[in-house]
């Protein structure tokens, strides 16, 4: 019998500390906040406390899963997508396996990807469930970019939130996830980079700060996202009308508006939550899926296309059928 995977549950955690536009202008009186809000669309961000780490918030997201219908002993693998781990070694997934009291037969590993990471993680989870005797896995996406952003960085600080999500993926007899379209253009690796964050040290850079060439990343998005959407539609012989909801990485208003323009997507087919959540990097799509479900935008039979894109430069898209 052919095996498939299904997303059984998505939980997420947003830190309690809010960073409003008023807070930003208070820190940076020369910022034209009206203009920034108009272009980014973002009114609020969630930021970890100084002593709160990616592992701390990942743990809180995972614990929410266990309050529902899954037992710790039923988890067979744990994948963590993060670019803000507590340590380069060991993998955060190993630490989480122990803290979450998961069995030691759990397969645990990390993936170093950002805004495309949920789609990559989902593909790997789907592959594991389709090929093995495993029944359940958790895909954690967690990033705390605020730790890498200078308080005066007008390009990055208005955009990014810290967040964690935990997605329960289960073996199924019905096809719910896929196919996948993935891609990479490493020629743009310096366009979105945390410098001095690994073994390569640049003496002229004070500490490990996020650098984003906004123009280059924006143009990459404009070139790539419409193509990947059309390629995925073609793969399944679908048209845009066949998709009930598009959930793009919640980069910013300017990015989402331009994707809608290029693909001629009506507003009601595109889910947007960046206004109040901000850009949560790898958790952006799972949080949007969870909120879309809470908002009754997803129901049995819905076909959703998710598209992640960003640091790498990397992208991924897939279809999710709600069964």
């Amino acid at each position: 019998m052919k095996l498939y995977s299904i997303i059984s549950d998505i939980q997420y955690y947003l830190p309690s500390r809010l960073l409003s536009n008023e807070d930003l202008v208070s820190d940076n009186p020369d910022w034209r906040m009206d203009d920034i809000e108009k272009k980014t669309g973002i009114k609020n961000r969630y930021i970890c406390e100084d002593n709160q780490t990616s592992k701390d918030i990942a743990l809180l997201a995972c614990e929410k899963l266990f309050k529902n219908n899954i037992k710790r002993s039923e988890i067979d693998f744990l994948i963590v997508v993060t670019e803000s781990p507590e340590y380069i070694a060991p993998a955060m997934s190993c630490d989480l396996q122990n803290i979450l009291n998961l069995k030691t037969s759990v397969a645990a590993f990390d993936i170093n990807l950002g805004c495309s990471g949920f789609v990559y993680g989902l593909m790997i989870a789907d592959s594991i469930l389709c090929a093995n005797s495993y029944n359940n896995g958790i895909l954690v996406c967690v990033d705390t970019y605020s730790k890498y952003i200078s308080p005066n960085d007008r390009t990055c600080r208005p955009l990014f939130s810290d967040a964690a999500s935990a997605t329960l993926i289960t073996r199924s007899q019905s096809k719910s996830v896929g196919p996948f379209e993935l891609g990479t253009d490493g020629s743009g690796y310096q366009d979105l980079i945390v410098q001095n964050s690994g073994t390569k040290k640049q003496a002229n850079i004070e500490r490990n700060l996020l650098h984003m060439d906004g123009g280059a990343v924006f143009m990459f998005t404009m070139r790539t996202v419409p193509k990947v959407v059309n390629d995925l539609l073609k793969k399944e012989k679908y048209k845009i009308e066949d998709i009930d909801l598009f959930v793009f990485h919640q980069a910013s208003k300017l990015v989402i508006d331009n994707i809608k323009r290029l693909l001629k997507l009506p507003d009601q087919k595109v889910y947007e939550n960046y206004q109040l959540v901000g850009n949560t990097v790898s958790s952006s799509i799972p949080i949007a899926l969870a909120q879309a479900k809470d908002d009754n935008r997803l129901k049995k039979g819905s076909i959703v296309m998710i598209v992640g894109f960003g640091v790498g430069l990397s992208w991924g898209a897939t279809l999710i059928r709600y069964i």
Binding site: D35, I36, K39, T40, R154, T155, G214, G215, F218, M219, M222, L254, D257, N258, R261, L262
Partner: peptide, 14 residues
């Protein structure tokens, strides 16, 4: 600024 630059790119693409 950096956001104005994105507006220019978007407007030119339109």
């Amino acid at each position: 600024d950096s956001l104005g630059h994105l507006s220019i790119l978007s407007s030119l693409d339109i």
